[in-house]
């Protein structure tokens, strides 16, 4: 069953929902220091990140909340 076709997928919230359902992440979650905001980048484009100060937040998001 492809959960990604059944769950809301818009934006970061949709991505977080999919991850908690066990769907492999389709995007890399980043924090952009220039805008001061979280953003999603397609994994296929991740190598093209141009800002060296970008922080990859995937691990921070996935290591659980108390």
């Amino acid at each position: 069953m492809d959960l990604s076709r059944q769950l809301p997928s818009a934006g970061i919230g949709g991505e977080l929902l999919l991850r908690t359902q066990g769907v492999p992440a389709r995007h890399r979650l980043e924090f952009d220091p220039q805008s001061g905001e979280l953003r999603l980048r397609p994994r296929a484009d991740a190598a093209q990140a141009t800002n060296p100060d970008t922080t990859y937040v995937d691990q921070i998001a996935s290591d659980g909340f108390a």
Partner: peptide, 13 residues
Amino acid sequence: VLKCLIWLVAYEN
């Protein structure tokens, strides 16, 4: 702070 920012995203969702 980044972790709490993710909490805030979840809250707004």
